[in-house]
Design a protein around this nucleic acid. Structure first.
Lengths: 303, 303
DNA sequence: ACGCCGTGATACCTGCGGGGTATCACAGAG
DNA sequence: CTCTGTGATACCCCGCAGGTATCACGGCGT
């Protein structure tokens, strides 16, 4: 019955060898994003004092000053900025690990379907391609369930990073493929979608310059994570709304060729000669080792 | 003085919403790698019973069976396999966050040099290129300190992943660039390095087939994370040792062109006509936002 | 000038849970 | 049938995460 002595050697000069806990990362990210201990604590569902203490302890453990407290709010130091970025990535990786583990056992699915794949797609984009892909994959001998997860404007990358999705259809140059493996699937030109009655709708082709500066037809602005870039055009939340506004002659929009699939009678599509081509890729986390995923990718590439 | 009630709502059906703690990941990885609770506990510097409990609790929290205990050791379930892979990546990301944060404040450097870059290179590869790169970068107006970190055979990727390095020189197809951003720097052919006295050393060119099956000259085997692939050739730990063995007429080796820089008098280099070209890339974590890093990359691309 | 907010920091307390030791249950080997 | 080595249980303890109460203090309104 010899009890083990404390054994926390704790190097004399402030040993900071331990790896961070995700709790500490969560706390720091909350503070770094809010730049306000009170609000951060509220967001975390805890009181402010323990938060302050936890951050201090984190700074001590890292031996690095992360925040400049200025008696009137908080500012990030350079090191804090680094931890904000790196910590986000790390936390995403941790939640991805949990999500994918649960998914592989069907623990996050009401029907308990094991080992399914989640495919993130920009809502209503690449309908044609998606349809063909799903059909072709379903015909494969060892196909697993594929759940199609519609994602907001540009967040397929986030979904791959934090494990909500296993694989995504992404559209260069709108989505960044940085950090993922990917295969090219389809290249298409872009079209301007105009009200059929508008004079420009009669043209055979247009240029970007033609479309971006039409006095009576300001270009629509899409929401990007809830906020809108400033500009004259209407703020668009979903595609139906956009389609209606175009039909009413209030705006123009630029889309890849495949958007012709959902045009209305009051719409006219005119090819843009100088718009950059849109390349649809299938993308997945670079470290993935899933066999069903590999099969899906193989199917996609020989589409 | 109203005390807050417990408030841990804990969803009726076993709420498992929380994000994993890195401690749990560390524990699981240890067990999953050792496939033995006792050894894993020892490696973690703790006793076995708390480890068992922690893993059980992890399984409960995820709602997933990770290990098949079979009264004679332990086996991974499918879900366990997933968590092993994803968890490694996640843990790497967490330690990378800590390392890079500390580095950006100079907290991990005896001299306390802030904001330096760590460049991982395969020891003694691309001498020429590396030299030019460092010189060119040092001449830049806002250059920071660059620490050159020699890395073992193929672990530059690991070093980028876990934050020991910020940027690396990698050699396709030996290193996998998956998951990183990269720019191509240099393409070179490969040469066979032979003992000067060997008959084949007289040839102008050789093919892979010529070199791989020479009865009296078995191809050297490099150590890969401490172990060696089976084969007849000598086991090589470092380049000097290899050079000596070649000089003694005991083995052949295949290297990129730039290896000519360190040849001895007793060596002869013969171009291989059918060896795949080696492409040296500069690679960095895709999510990196560091300005000094961007400057280094810019310098590298215009060599 | 002076109290009044609102900021983050401190002081102090409590309870959960992470970690320890002792022991069990059991499967295979001798 | 014991002996050995596996992971699981039982039980205990104390460290620390988290709570409340309060402080120190910089702006700011009147």
């Amino acid at each position: 019955m010899k009890r083990m002595e404390p054994l926390q050697s704790l190097g004399a000069e402030g040993g900071t060898q331990e790896t961070l806990e995700t709790r500490e990362l969560r706390y720091f990210l909350a503070v770094a994003e809010e730049l306000h201990f009170g609000r951060a604590a509220e967001r975390l569902g805890m009181a402010q004092p323990p938060l302050s203490r936890a951050i201090q302890q984190l700074e001590r453990r890292l031996g690095v000053r992360l925040l400049e407290r200025d008696r009137r709010g908080v500012a990030l130091t350079d090191a804090g900025e680094v931890l904000l970025h790196e910590g986000r990535a790390a936390l995403d990786a941790v939640t991805a690990a949990a999500r994918r583990t649960r998914r592989s056992a069907g623990a996050d699915d009401p029907a308990g379907r094991r080992n399914r794949l989640v495919l993130a797609v920009k809502a209503a984009a690449s309908h044609e391609l998606l349809h063909k892909l799903l059909d072709a994959y379903a015909a494969e001998p060892d196909a697993v369930e594929v759940e199609v997860l519609p994602s907001g404007t540009c967040e397929q990358g986030d979904m791959l990073r934090d494990g909500r999705a296993d694989v995504a259809l992404m559209h260069a140059p709108f989505n960044s493929l940085a950090g993922f493996d990917s295969e090219e699937l389809l290249t298409e030109g872009q079209i301007a979608i105009l009200p059929a009655r508008h004079p420009l709708a009669a043209r055979r082709t247009l240029t970007l310059a033609d479309v971006t500066d039409i006095p009576d037809l300001p270009l629509a602005r899409w929401s990007r994570d809830g906020t809108f870039l400033p500009g004259p055009g209407p703020e668009i939340h979903d595609q139906t709304q956009l389609a209606q506004l175009i039909a009413l002659g209030r705006t123009v929009a630029i889309f890849p060729d495949s958007a012709r699939a959902w045009l209305w009678a009051e719409h006219t599509a005119v090819p843009l000669t100088d718009a950059p081509p849109v390349v649809t890729h299938i993308a997945w986390p670079a470290h993935s080792r899933s066999l069903p995923l590999a099969a899906l990718i193989r199917t996609a590439t020989r589409l």
